[in-house]
Each structure stands twice: as C-alpha cells, then as structure tokens.
Simulated scan of single mutants.
Amino acid sequence: MDLIKHNSDAWDKKVDEGSRYTQRVSSETIEKSKTGKWEISVTTEKSVPRDWFPEVIDGLKILCLASGGGQQGPILAAAGADVTVTDISKKQLEQDEIVAERDGLTLRTVQGDMSDLSDFGDEYFDVVVNPVSNLFVKDVKPVWNEISRVLKNKGILIAGFTNPLLWIFDDNQERKGILDVKNSIPSSTLDYLPKDEIQDYIKSNNTIEYAHTLEDQIQGQIDAGFVISGFYEDDFGGTRILDKYIKTFIATRAIKLKNI
C-alpha cells in the first residue's frame, strides 16, 4: 500500500465531507490579521502564544508544513509573512488558494510529503509551522530532520502533535464514555483492527494514523538539532471523556542551533 497516496486521498475525502480541519478561515479573520490582530492554532483549541513568533513577522519566510485547509497559511500571509503551504492533499491546498484569491493574499502552495522536503533548499525558511499532522507518517524522525535542514540557523519550529496516550484506549469504547486500555505504543490504526477488517478499512478511504512515542516526538526534535524553548498542552475542548483526565495534544516551540 502507498501510504502517502492513501492518506492524500483520505484527506481529499475529508475536504468533501467538510471536516473541521478543512474549514477555510473567514474574510473577517483575514482582515483582522492584516491589521496585526492575528492568531493561529497548531493543536485543537488553544492559540499559539504570539511571543513564540519573532516580534516582526513582516517578510519572514514561513513554511506551513502539512498545513493545508485554508487556516494557518492565509492568516500568516495576511499578517505580512512570505508563506509557503505544503500538504499531501491537493484539495486541502485548494482551500488555501481559495482564501488567497478571495482576500487578495500572496502565498505559495506545494503538494508533497512532510517527510521529504526536497522541493525546498537548505536553510531557506525563518519559521516552520507544523500543526498536528505527523500522526499520518510511519516514522516521524525524517520529518524533524527535514525541518531542520530547511530552517535557517536559529530558525523557529512551532509544532503540534498528539500525546500517544490517546491511542492506548479502545476508540469506540472511549467515545461511549468507557476507558478501556487496549493498545500499545508505538502502533497504527491497522494494528487495532481484526485481520479480516483491515482491507475493508483501507477501501473505506479513511486516514491511517500512527501513534509515535513521546521520545520520538521530543527527543527526535533534539536529535535533529533543536532546543525546546516552549511547551503547552491542549485537548478536545471538553467533547471527549479523556478531557476530564489529561490533555491529549502537545505543542512545542523549538530553535534550531548548529553545533549544539
């Protein structure tokens, strides 16, 4: 199975279905962003602290990585940044293009896999913004390495990712309010299914997700040349039973430093 093609098609499907993470920001939001009143999220509910970004954003080269959907990229472009949005889903990128055309923004879109940023040169970007998305790749370490390569020295990575604790519970039971520990970490969507249901799941064109260890998520950034300089947690906004007990999303701010 071609995982990239599968998840690309699955995200195209999510756009057709109107998933939350495919919803374009409004023209009102863009107009506010043009006046300096902007904010973005890389998790579910919380906004990224403004001081995680450089004080002056105008002209900064920002890569919105695996960030299609007409959300982060257009807001940052409206705020004055030189924005490139890359995503595996063509339809997700079309959301950004629609907002840009609608609201008179300039941004670039590039379809591609977050584990392979060969379309971009070494040390080109000042900031990389990576919303929760690396759950769609089997190995997260190449993602951190590629981000490090395309970031300038002392460049900033703002990343959101999932706390692997979310995946240890039976998903169907958890949505019924029952916390049933069933799965190990690392693992994938397909690992949780009976063998006779795997092919049906693949044919259903739903995303295949991977639960990465916190070591791969955090030490993986450090191994790629980053120093973690900011951290917060987020949840589903009270819509899931787990929100009563623990935060299931994490955001980190990291600085690329050579020869650390």
Rank of each mutant, 00 (worst) to 15 (best):
78 A>S: 07
114 M>F: 04
91 K>F: 01
111 Q>M: 12
129 V>D: 01
81 A>V: 11
116 D>Y: 08
101 E>A: 15
75 I>P: 04
102 R>H: 13
100 A>L: 03
106 T>R: 11
135 L>F: 12
138 K>V: 03
77 A>L: 04
131 P>F: 05
100 A>S: 12
105 L>S: 10
114 M>L: 12
130 N>F: 10
73 G>N: 09
76 L>V: 10
75 I>R: 05
112 G>D: 04
79 A>Q: 05
69 G>V: 02
75 I>A: 01
128 V>E: 03
87 D>I: 11
115 S>A: 15
94 E>F: 12
139 D>I: 01
97 E>G: 02
71 Q>E: 05
71 Q>I: 15
113 D>Y: 10
97 E>S: 14
113 D>I: 14
125 F>A: 04
139 D>N: 15
105 L>V: 06
95 Q>F: 00
103 D>K: 00
126 D>S: 00
81 A>R: 10
118 S>H: 13
127 V>Y: 03
85 V>Y: 00
134 N>M: 13
102 R>F: 08
129 V>W: 02
140 V>C: 12
93 L>P: 12
123 E>G: 09
99 V>W: 04
88 I>V: 15
120 F>H: 01
92 Q>C: 02
68 G>A: 07
83 V>I: 15
107 L>K: 00
136 F>T: 14
92 Q>S: 13
141 K>Q: 13
105 L>I: 10
70 G>H: 05
99 V>F: 07
112 G>M: 11
109 T>L: 06
83 V>R: 01
129 V>G: 03
116 D>P: 05
83 V>Y: 05
127 V>C: 02
115 S>N: 14
88 I>F: 03
100 A>W: 03
80 G>V: 10
114 M>C: 12
93 L>K: 07
88 I>H: 03
99 V>Q: 03
83 V>N: 09
108 R>V: 10
78 A>I: 09
86 T>G: 04
73 G>H: 04
88 I>Y: 00
69 G>S: 03
91 K>H: 08
72 Q>E: 14
124 Y>Q: 04
130 N>L: 15
126 D>L: 06
113 D>W: 09
128 V>D: 09
108 R>L: 11
79 A>R: 00
111 Q>Y: 00
100 A>P: 04
94 E>R: 15
87 D>L: 06
121 G>Y: 02
91 K>N: 10
136 F>I: 11
87 D>E: 03
122 D>Y: 12
95 Q>A: 08
121 G>M: 06
117 L>H: 04
122 D>N: 15
115 S>C: 15
95 Q>T: 00
97 E>D: 13
122 D>Q: 07
122 D>F: 09
70 G>Q: 08
75 I>W: 00
127 V>F: 02
116 D>T: 08
96 D>F: 12
118 S>T: 14
93 L>V: 09
132 V>D: 00
109 T>S: 10
118 S>R: 14
126 D>W: 00
93 L>T: 04
77 A>I: 14
80 G>N: 12
81 A>H: 11
96 D>Q: 02
137 V>F: 06
116 D>K: 13
89 S>K: 06
138 K>I: 01
101 E>V: 09
78 A>C: 08
127 V>T: 06
125 F>G: 00
137 V>G: 02
76 L>M: 06
124 Y>E: 13
89 S>Y: 07
98 I>N: 03
112 G>I: 05
124 Y>S: 10
107 L>G: 00
67 S>A: 15
99 V>K: 05
70 G>A: 09
127 V>I: 15
